[in-house]
Every structure is written in C-alpha cells, then in structure tokens.
C-alpha cells in the first residue's frame, strides 16, 4: 500500500462522506422532532437529482445552476407528503409513520421510473480534465461537492444557533410538549424542518449524481449508510450527523484497501451495529 493510495481514498471518503452528511442532517432533524426514521429520505435525494436533470436538459443550465430547481422539487414533494400523509399520523405510534415513509419511498421511486425510465443518466457527458495535486486526482465535480457541503454545513450551523426558527427546532427536538406550552407553533416549525431536510437531501442527490450517475434507485441505496451516519453521530443531533457522515464515508472508502468495494454497505452496517451495541446514544449523545 502506498501513501498516495491512502490519501486518494481519504479524499474520496470525505467526498462521499459529505454526501452522506447532507442526507443524514435531515434524517437526524426529522427524527429529533417527529420521532421516526424517515425511510423516504434517500428517494427525496433522487427526486432532487432528477429535478436538476430536468432543468439541465430542459433549460440548458449547467448542473450547479440547476440546484435551486432540485431543492424546489424536493421541498414541494416533502412538504406535500407531510401535509397530506404524515400529518394525519402524527398522533399515532412512530412505527406507523416509519412504515408509511417506507411506502412513500417506493411510491416516489416508481413515479421517477415512470417519468424518466430506468436507464442510467448523466448531467453532462464527455470527459472532464481532473486536477492533480501531487499524486492525488480530483475531478471538478469533487471540488464543487466539497465546497458546497462546507458552505451548507456552515449555513446549517448558523441557522440552528443564531435564528429564532433554528433555536425553536432545537427546542422542539429537546421537548415537544414544553415547546407547545411555551407558545411555539409546532406545526409551523415542522414544515420548516421538512423544507430544510428536503433541501439538503436534494443537494445531496445532485452531488451524488455528479459523483456517479442518475438512477431511480440511487437515493434508496444511500439509506443504509445515511442511517448509519445519523446513528453514529447520535440520532437527533445534526452536528453528530455531519461527523457520522464523514466517518462512514471515509471508513467505506478505506475498507477497499482490504475488502472488495462490494462490501462497502456491509462496512456501514457493521459500524452501525457496533455503535448500537457499545454506545447507542451515538458519539454526540443523542437519543437511544
């Protein structure tokens, strides 16, 4: 093993970890406030990626300029599902919400397949010249992914710490009943939580498609490492989700030094199970 290989995999790990982190922040926020694991989150990523594709092919935009369309599409879908389906189930057991989100995941995937078909697609065909830093190779898309994630994580941090809506989200995640008697309009905050979670998922979906390619199951296949990231960091803790995403991403890439890349999901699964056994509250002490 050469140092250069190691560093190259580390870079790839941080890139795929960034995508996981953006998805896991939303999963973690939604779990913190609504108390269920949102299984359709990966498919919201897919929705975002394909909405960007529509803007790229329909309007001739470069993919970065198509990101607002991805966000808009995923947010409309997420808030729509919440208000028509999940909202009616809020007073029931969380497991019912979980199962219904599983159903929504399948429905979203099916709709995407009906509209865009099942073949692989890319935003932009042809070869892009990579950057070389020493022995490390970096695609232009990777630079966008790293910079975009850094920007969004900083924005999420400022939002949660400095704005009154962000603080209300943290308050609701701490104690929903107290938030209600404090006068916080819970339903309004829930809608904004979906806006934020779906917006980040959409960007994650576009980044994933830039890194690989578009396919109706692309987001669904990310659910396992995303849940692993959210659990690793401490479910309900957005900062933990960022940390967890990066660790899972790097662990998956580095594992290919010894294992076949086909085992990447198994690595994420193993970390998740290990964490649930030794420290179920996660690295940053979320909920069990």
């Amino acid at each position: 093993m050469y140092l250069a290989d190691f560093l190259q995999l580390l870079v790839y790990g941080v890139i795929s970890g960034s995508i996981l982190a953006l998805g896991a922040i939303g999963v973690s926020l939604i779990f913190g406030i609504l108390r269920f694991a949102h299984f359709a989150h990966g498919d919201l990523m897919t929705v975002g990626a394909f909405c960007a594709l529509a803007a790229v092919t329909g309007l001739g935009l470069p993919v970065i300029a198509a990101i607002p369309f991805a966000i808009l599409g995923a947010v409309v879908v997420a808030v729509g599902i919440d208000q028509t389906i999940y909202r009616r189930l809020r007073r029931t057991a969380p497991v019912i919400l979980l199962i219904s989100s599983f159903g929504m995941a399948m429905a979203l995937r099916a709709v995407i397949q009906i509209i865009w078909g099942t073949q692989d697609r890319v935003y932009q065909s042809g070869i892009q010249l990579p950057y070389r830093i020493g022995d490390i190779v970096l695609q232009p898309a990777h630079v966008w992914i790293l910079a975009g994630t850094a920007l969004l994580v900083a924005a999420v941090h400022l939002f949660l710490q400095k704005t009154s809506l962000g603080k209300a989200m943290r308050a609701m995640s701490d104690n929903m009943d107290l938030a209600r008697v404090t006068g916080i309009n819970a339903e309004r905050v829930i809608i904004w939580t979906w806006v934020m979670g779906a917006g980040l998922a959409a960007v994650a979906g576009v980044f994933l498609a830039m890194d690989t390619r578009l396919h109706p199951t692309m987001g669904w296949h990310m659910m396992l490492p995303i849940f692993a990231a959210a659990i690793l960091g401490g479910i309900g803790k957005p900062y933990g989700a960022i940390l967890g995403g990066l660790i899972i991403g790097v662990a998956q890439e580095l594992s290919t030094l010894w294992l076949s890349p086909a085992y990447k999901p198994a690595v994420a699964f193993a970390i998740m199970v290990f964490m649930l056994i030794v420290r179920p509250q996660g690295l940053l002490g979320g909920r069990r």
């Binding site: 209300a168 943290r170 308050a171 701490d174 104690n175």
Partner: peptide
C-alpha cells in the same frame, strides 16, 4: 418536570419564551 430545554442555553431558553 422537564420544564427547560436541556440542550439550549439559559438565554436561549428565555428567548423561546418570547417566540410569539
């Protein structure tokens, strides 16, 4: 019981009271 938001600071707890 459970009458504060534990992960929020004292000041943030007070700010929540003025949310409306």
């Amino acid at each position: 019981e459970h009458n504060v938001f534990p992960s929020l600071t004292v000041q943030e707890n007070l700010e929540m009271g003025a949310y409306l």
